[in-house]
Design a binder for these strands. Structure first.
Length: 390
RNA sequence: GGCGGGAUGUCCGAGUGGUUAAAGGAGACAGGCUGUAAACCUGUUGGCUCUGCCUACGUAGGUUCGAAUCCUACUCCCGCCA
């Protein structure tokens, strides 16, 4: 049985900050003394339907807590999603409909269980308690000052450059903080961008005569561009439910510089420096696929990758696309098959980005009889394929 | 409530009556090089029945041969005063 000190050290591995210093260890001792598991809180606002690798950094840390015998309280922020977390944002979040939020919450929960142990988790929705009375809200609003809120970098930046900040956004941290009161959190996790919100939770708990939580911030995983944080709205994410080939391919496209970070945050290991970089990245990509699927899927994804990008072959399975009509107008075909506009299709043709059975199609003969296209493989760019069927 | 400033393409941002589908940058896409990496080079980046046509500079009108550019109203944002 590891001591509280050892456990705390293990759990604080690769965290950016754990505050207050020694707080986690004290919480662990308390749990031991009271003979109960700690309640580890994570709040996720279901603003987008899918969980991506960025989320899994924090989820994996939660898993470690679970494995150490503690309870995870996963809060689906169905109520806060309607407010919109301003953290790190340069503009107000778009408003989501209740239906969207519900649908997102459902898939989120399901996907979170790809990482979490379903037996040691309590799933809550913050609409359970945030639909509060004005008096309760006033109590919250007495605690932080306007100056404290405006000092945050995201707000102060927006304020100084003249971008609007809705009063509601100022309120967001309070709501998240109140979640900690509602679920009696011992520890709360979040990305480094959540530090303010997490710390405010401590003040709000104290004001409600509850012991303040310990907070742990985790590093932010950069997206496939290697620069900005991974986020669906930034289009640089790798979703955990994406097909194995996609996860593999997207992982291969990350810049080398962030590879060690990916290894550390996603696999809790280091790249094998004896291997050439490309091999290191392959191992990374395979390990990530294997984590969300299995070894054989990882091997298949790698094989698929090689086929496409090493031997410039076509993939084993290509979706069929039914041709309609006798004479096929190429731009129209491309537009329908790949969801492009016809103008876009024309440009691609001009630039040699379209090929049929491996042969580049220029923009000369734009009308082709359907019979000539039957069974041929249409390719756009490097990785979009359709098999044509008359 | 009063006064002043502002709203431009995916984003940022130039443009104050006439080759302006709108400079520049970012992003994205395609091609080259490669390790489908990054960097770098080239091209493209509103739509279409595509050597032309249509639609676009917050919204709706107006002035003019001609408007993103001038006028009026409205909407929204920012600031100052209260």
């Amino acid at each position: 049985m590891p001591t509280a000190e050892e456990t705390a050290k293990m759990l604080e591995r690769n965290a950016v900050e754990a505050l207050p210093t020694g707080g986690l260890e004290a919480k662990l001792r308390l749990a031991e003394a009271e003979g109960r598991p700690l309640r580890i809180k994570l709040g996720i606002d279901p603003t987008a339907p899918d969980i991506h690798l960025g989320h899994t950094v924090v989820l994996s840390k939660l898993r470690e807590f679970q494995d150490a015998g503690h309870t995870v309280v996963l809060i689906l922020g169905d109520y806060t999603a309607r407010v919109g977390d301003p953290s790190g944002r340069s503009k107000t979040r778009p408003e989501l409909s209740v239906d969207e939020i519900d649908a997102n919450a459902a898939t989120f929960q399901e996907q979170a269980f790809k990482v979490l142990d379903a037996d040691r988790v309590e799933v809550r929705r913050n609409s359970e308690w945030l639909d509060m009375s004005m008096m309760e809200l006033f109590k919250l609003m007495r605690i932080p000052t306007v100056a404290q809120l405006l000092e945050r970098e995201d707000f102060s930046k927006r304020y100084s450059e003249g971008s609007p900040i809705a009063l509601l956004e100022l309120l967001y941290p309070l709501l998240q903080a109140y979640d900690s009161v509602a679920v009696q959190a011992d520890v709360e996790l979040g990305g480094t961008d959540q530090k303010f919100n997490l710390l405010l939770g401590r003040d709000i708990q104290t004001a409600h005569d509850e012991p303040p939580q310990t907070i742990i911030t985790m590093p932010i995983l950069p997206g496939v561009d290697g620069v900005r944080r991974m986020g669906k709205s930034l289009g640089n994410h790798i979703g955990v439910t994406e097909p194995p080939e996609e996860i593999f391919g997207k992982t291969m496209s990350i810049p080398d510089e962030v590879m060690p970070l990916y290894y550390d945050l996603l696999l809790a290991s280091e790249p094998d420096s004896a291997l050439p970089p490309v091999q290191q990245k392959r191992e990374l990509a395979k390990a990530i696929v294997a984590r969300f699927y299995d070894e054989s899927a990882a091997d298949a994804a790698e094989a698929h990758f090689d086929k496409l990008f090493k031997s410039h072959d076509i993939p084993d399975e290509i979706e069929d696309f039914a041709l309609s009509g006798e004479e096929i107008h190429l731009p129209a075909l491309l537009a329908d098959a790949f969801g492009l506009s016809r103008s876009e299709a024309r440009r691609l043709l001009e630039q040699g980005g379209v090929s049929l059975d491996g042969e580049v199609v220029g923009n000369v003969a734009l009308d082709i009889p359907a019979t000539e296209l039957e069974g041929r493989v249409l390719k756009v760019g490097k990785r979009r394929f359709k098999r044509l069927r008359a």
